[in-house]
Structure formats: structure tokens, C-alpha cells
């Protein structure tokens, strides 16, 4: 369908909040099947950047191309990109008035016009993948944080997206629940999903990422494969960040 093998192509991206320059000239390409981990201190623009990819934030300048579709003000382009790009949020953002199963079947039925039975079969398949099928008829508020986040991953998967964005998926979780979510993410990665993941979980980055990107003050400061990124950071800001985050 598209000639390029890049799933996401960001060129000279600029983002302002009023006077504040949130993203400065970001360039990033993510190949299909590639797993990219984005890290950096809070306020560095990591979340803003990945939120630009599915238009939860509007960029001011530069271009974003997702799977061959140019992200512009054109609503049909935005809708097309959102259909193919799934997102997992820090606070899960499940729909509290719907059961786990309904959370998962909603978008496939409304957006992809899938029949109920087919949508439910698909949802159960992904709920099994995130190891939570027995909770299908419960409501989000009846599950623990880790379980809710796994449901949120299943909900995103039910749209069968090409790209998955993770916005600090484990930051709101208790330590013992982080592992169960990271396990699911690791198994997704091994199945070839294209993933862009903002996280502070350096162990996960080391194990799963093809590439690690370090952002600070709205720009990409350093990028490289995990091995050299962690053992031999080139930039002093990266080194300072790593020594802080890895000391505890």
C-alpha cells in the first residue's frame, strides 16, 4: 500500500504551548516492527511527542506521516491514522460504565462496523493474550490497576492497529503490578508489533527496545541501540539522567 517501510516518519516537528516551546525540531522515523523506547526527565516533551502522532496534540510545524498517511487538518486522514494507531495511557482511561468486554468491543463495532459476535470473539482472543479472560464481565472499577492496564492494552489491540503507542503505561501502578504489564508488553514486542513506548522502565528498554531515544527540554538529545545507550552514553545530559534513574 505504501512504498516506505517506515511506520512513523516525523520531520522537523515543532510544538508550542503559547510562548513555551515544547518540542524543538524533532526528527524520528520508526520502521515497521521496530520497538522504540523514549525516555527523559519529566517535562522533556516525550508524552507530547507521542500524543502528536495520533493528534491528541496538534503540532504547529513540521510533518508527521503515519503508514503513508500525512497527518493534517483533514479529518478523514486523522480518523484513518487513529484507526491504525492504538494508544495505552498512563491512567488506563477505560470506560467505567462498560464491562471489560464492552470496552474491548466498542471501537471494533462502531469504527470497523464489526458484528457483535465477531467483535466479542476478537475481544476474548486479546483478553486471553493479556491473561485476563475470566474478568470479561467485570467493570473496570472492580479490577486492580495492573489488570485495568492489561484490559486497556487488549482494548487497543482489538482495533488491530499497526502501531501501538504507550504513554508511561506503568507509572501509575504499584511495583508488584508493573511486572504483569511489562510481561504483556514484552510478549507483544516479540510478536512483531511496532511499538513506541514512553517509559522509565530501563530494564524493559534494555530487554525489548531496538532503539532508545533520550529527550530533554523538547529535543532529542541522543539515540542509539540499548547496549551502547546504557553502557556508553555520548551526551552528558544522558549520562546524568541515567546515573539518576539507575542509582535506585
Amino acid at each position: 500500500m505504501y512504498a516506505s517501510t517506515n511506520a512513523v516518519e516525523i520531520r522537523n516537528l515543532q510544538k508550542f504551548y503559547g510562548q513555551y516551546h515544547a518540542l524543538r525540531n524533532i526528527n524520528l522515523s520508526v520502521k515497521k516492527g521496530e520497538k522504540v523506547v523514549v525516555c527523559g526527565p519529566s517535562g522533556s516533551g516525550k508524552s507530547t511527542m507521542i500524543r502528536c502522532i495520533n493528534r491528541l496534540e496538534e503540532h504547529n510545524d513540521g510533518s508527521i506521516n503515519v503508514l503513508g498517511t500525512e497527518l493534517s487538518d483533514d479529518i478523514s486522514n486523522i480518523d484513518e491514522i487513529r484507526r491504525e494507531v492504538g494508544m495505552v495511557f498512563q491512567h488506563f482511561n477505560l470506560f467505567p460504565h462498560m464491562t471489560v468486554l464492552e470496552n474491548c468491543t466498542l471501537a471494533p463495532m462502531l469504527v470497523r462496523k464489526m458484528p457483535l459476535a465477531e467483535a466479542e470473539a476478537l475481544a476474548m482472543k486479546f483478553l486471553e493474550k493479556v491473561r485476563i479472560p475470566h474478568q470479561a464481565d467485570k467493570f473496570p472499577g472492580q479490577l486492580s490497576g495492573g489488570q485495568q492496564q492489561r484490559v486497556a492494552i487488549a482494548r487497543a489491540l482489538c482495533m488491530q492497529p499497526e502501531v501501538l503507542l504507550f504513554d508511561e503505561p506503568t507509572s501509575a501502578l504499584d511495583p508488584e503490578m508493573i511486572a504483569e504489564v511489562l510481561d504483556v508488553m514484552t510478549s507483544l514486542a516479540s510478536e512483531g508489533m511496532t511499538m513506541i513506548c514512553v517509559t522509565h522502565e530501563m530494564g524493559f528498554a534494555r530487554k525489548v527496545a531496538d532503539r532508545v531515544i533520550f529527550m530533554d527540554a523538547g529535543e532529542v538529545v541522543e539515540e542509539g541501540d540499548p547496549e551502547s545507550f546504557f553502557t556508553n552514553p555520548q551526551n552528558e545530559r544522558t549520562a546524568a539522567f541515567l546515573s539518576q534513574i539507575l542509582s535506585d
Partner: peptide, 11 residues
């Protein structure tokens, strides 16, 4: 959050 999740799903 619910608004963003709905938009991100393409609703």
C-alpha cells in the same frame, strides 16, 4: 482521559 481514549480509538 475518557475523551482521549475515545478519540484515540477512532470514535
Amino acid at each position: 482521559g475518557q475523551h482521549e481514549a475515545a478519540r484515540a480509538l477512532g470514535l
